[in-house]
Structure formats: C-alpha cells, structure tokens
Amino acid sequence: MRSEQHTSGQYAIVAVAASAGGIQGLSALLSGLGPTLRVPVLVVQHLDPRHRTLLAEVLSRRTELPVKLAEDQERVEPGTVYLAPPDRHLLVGPAGLLSLSNSELVHFVRPSADLLFESVAGAYGSRAIACVLTGTGVDGAMGVEAIKQRGGTVISEDPETAQFAGMPRAAVATGAVDFVLRLDEIAAAVRGLVEDKRQ
C-alpha cells in the first residue's frame, strides 16, 4: 500500500452538474463517495425556482456526507456537499469562498453549470474535477472546456446510458472530457483521483 502522507492529493474540489434526471444521478454519485471524501463537492442541479427545494434533505438520505444549500460568503469545508439554491448562480473564488448571484440566465438556466465550472477553473486550476451528469440542454459544455484549459480533469456520464443525454453529449462533443463513464462508475473514479497522493 502507499505510504501514509499528510499532504493532500492533487485534487482539491469536485464540481457536479445535472438537470433532468439529476436527483437519481446525484443520489448514485454521492452515495458512492463514502464518508471520508477529503474535498468539498459543489453541485448545480437545475430546479424549479418557484418552489422551496427539498433537494438537500433528499440527498442527505443517500450519502454519508453532509449536504446543504450553499450560502453566500461561506467557505467550503472538505467532505461537505454544497448545492446551488434555486434561481441563484453558485460561484467559488480563491480560498474556497462561495458566492451566490442572481445575474442573468445562462443558456436559459440559473443556476448555471458553466458559471460554476468557470469559477472552479479560475480558483483551482489543475486541482479541479468536473462531472457532468444526466440532463437536457448544453449547460456545462463551455465550463468543461474552461476546466480542461486550466489543467483540471473532466468526467462525463456516458450519453448512451444517461437518463437524459443532452448535457453529457454536449460535454463530450467539446473534446475536453477525460473519462466517459456509466453513472455507477463515476463515484469510484472520483474517489480514485482524489485519494491518489502521488505528486
């Protein structure tokens, strides 16, 4: 086995995007991450802005990690899942400081995966992992290109097996995706990347 080191691995954050079919997709991903993930997870799930969301409560039952709606000016903590609130863009800045914005829609949606991924790319560069799960539309495609350009790693759910193929297909079409995986394979891939301490 690898010798124990107290330095963190190469990766420092995971950003996830989902839309239609996302509750099932996020449940599968988060439940597979285990209770000891060493990095924060930021999630954009397209939600109906007219209703209070119960997504944090639903996902909390599917994972051992704490799940909460992100708050403006909150600093991310390792092993915590932060969800973009309905109708607010979720961004992250240097030192893991979150911000929420009600700026204009991007590709007709707010929150936008593109804006999240672009902020993650800017703040974390090569230490970022982005995951695109099931969904309609093209949100996330520009963002994964930003992640890749800054040296990060991109995982997409396989469009052939995704419940809704639009978002995964758009991501894969950019050429920026490193791994195209079935939903049940993504959590293990994320864990493997985060836990790999080789530098």
Results as ranks from 00 to 15, higher is better:
Glu118Cys: 13
Glu104Trp: 04
Leu133Tyr: 06
Val109Lys: 01
Ala113Asn: 09
Ala146Thr: 00
Gly143Asp: 12
Glu145Trp: 00
Arg127Phe: 02
Gly137Ser: 01
Ala121Gln: 06
Leu133Gln: 12
Leu133Ala: 14
Val106Glu: 07
Val106Gly: 01
Asp114Asn: 13
Leu115Phe: 05
Arg110Ile: 03
Leu105Cys: 00
Glu118Tyr: 05
Met142Thr: 08
Leu116Pro: 08
Ser119Tyr: 02
Ala141Glu: 13
Cys131Gln: 05
Arg110His: 09
Ala113Gln: 09
Pro111Lys: 02
Ser119Pro: 06
Tyr124Thr: 10
Gly137Asp: 00
Gly125Ile: 08
Gly140Pro: 03
Ser119Arg: 02
Gly137Leu: 05
Gly137Glu: 04
Gly140Phe: 01
Ala121Lys: 11
Leu105His: 05
Thr134Ser: 15
Gly122Asn: 11
Gly125Pro: 07
Met142Asn: 09
Cys131Met: 07
Glu118Asn: 11
Gly135Ile: 05
His107Arg: 08
Thr134Pro: 02
Ala123Arg: 14
Val109Asn: 00
Ala128Tyr: 10
Ala123Ser: 15
Glu104Gln: 10
Val120Ala: 14
Val138Met: 03
Thr134Phe: 04
Gly143Ile: 05
Ala141Asn: 07
Val109Arg: 02
Asp114His: 04
Val109Met: 03
Asp114Leu: 05
Ala146Leu: 01
Cys131His: 01
His107Leu: 12
Ser126Arg: 13
Gly140Glu: 00
Val109Ser: 11
Leu116Tyr: 14
Gly125Thr: 08
Val120Met: 15
Val120Tyr: 07
Pro111Asn: 11
Gly122Met: 12
Asp139Arg: 02
Phe117Thr: 09
Gly143Glu: 05
Val138Cys: 08
Arg110Gln: 03
Tyr124Trp: 13
Val138Phe: 13
Pro111Ala: 11
Ala128Lys: 10
Val106Phe: 05
Ala113Thr: 10
Leu116Lys: 06
Gly143Ala: 09
Ser119Asn: 10
Leu116Met: 12
Met142Ile: 08
Ser119Glu: 07
Ala130Gly: 15
Asp114Val: 12
Thr134Tyr: 07
